[in-house]
Computed example of a mutant assay.
Amino acid sequence: MARFAFRIEYDGGPFSGWQRQAGGQASVQQTFEEALARLEPGDHRIAAAGRTDAGVHATGQVAHADLAKDWDPFRLAQALNWHLKPAPVAVSACARVADDFHARFSAMERRYLFRLVARRAPAVLERGLVWQVPNRLDLGAMRAGAAHLVGRHDFTTFRAAMCQADSPVKTLDEISIEELPFPGGAEFRFHLRARSFLHNQVRSIVGTLERVGAGAWPPERVGEALAARDRAACGPVCPPHGLYLTRVSYPADPFAG
């Protein structure tokens, strides 16, 4: 068997998430595995770096699969993209990797982007791709609130009740926020970087920081919520459609060269 790594992008809107669902709902994993089966008949199972939730998008998801044929990576990517049509899923890079490469367990870092648009008029061309709020947001206040979250902490407050991680302690290496022009308003982009994240951690953080930006929370309340280690202290969890998995890093980039 030959092991291949894939960099995958997808619009999460039509899917119940990355992971294959027992009830038969459409998932990115199932869609990808069915495309593989059209190239090599059989029951394929792929492993991904992150199991994104329903509605969450990706520009840099990484997965791996073992195939019987030692494909040319370029031809494999092109063939998969043909068989993935018309689903909003595409392989943007493919590489032959060592047998001990694992998309999830070999990963050193994951990066997420959250896009938030603040304006009153509906963002029709970005519908399903951003979270929109009608109120103006204070960038400085959100940055001050975010500063409380950088570093190694117990993130119980920002963890979904259904999270299956062994520990709520995680190290958030970076959270940066930029404000960009958007017709009739502004777009705020939240960039988060860590080795791994808890279930709903990013959406819980962004939803809380939006309350800070809107003036409903003072920035220091973010630190108080973190210290409470209580899910009830968290701000609202924002919707999934503004969230993107943008990059997964490994000791050696499988797609370099």
Score class of each variant (00 low, 15 high):
Ala26Leu: 15
Val133Cys: 11
Val169Ser: 10
Thr52Phe: 07
Asp138Ala: 06
Pro73Asp: 05
Gly257Cys: 05
Asp43Lys: 04
Val202Arg: 06
Ser196Lys: 09
Leu113Cys: 03
Phe32Ile: 14
Val206Pro: 08
Asp100Met: 03
Gly242Thr: 09
His44Trp: 00
Thr171Ala: 14
Ala216Asp: 14
Asp53Ala: 09
Ser176Asn: 10
Ala256His: 14
Glu178Asp: 14
Leu125Thr: 12
Gly17Lys: 11
Val117Thr: 14
Gly207Ala: 13
Trp18Lys: 04
Cys163Trp: 06
Ala95Phe: 01
Leu243Tyr: 02
Ala90His: 05
Leu198Cys: 07
Asp154Arg: 03
Arg120Asp: 11
Ala77Lys: 03
Phe4Arg: 02
Phe15Val: 14
Ala165Asp: 15
Gly207Asn: 12
Ala68Gly: 14
Leu36Pro: 05
Arg152Leu: 02
Ala95Met: 06
Glu210Ser: 10
Ala65Met: 00
Leu137Gln: 13
Gln19Lys: 15
Leu245Arg: 04
Ala90Asn: 07
Arg96Lys: 12
Arg195Tyr: 00
Pro219Phe: 01
His83Gly: 02
Gly215Leu: 00
Ser196Asp: 15
Ala216Gly: 02
Leu198Ser: 08
His64Lys: 04
Gln19Gly: 09
Ser196Ala: 15
Glu174Ile: 01
His148Met: 05
His44Tyr: 00
Ala252Arg: 10
Arg120Gln: 15
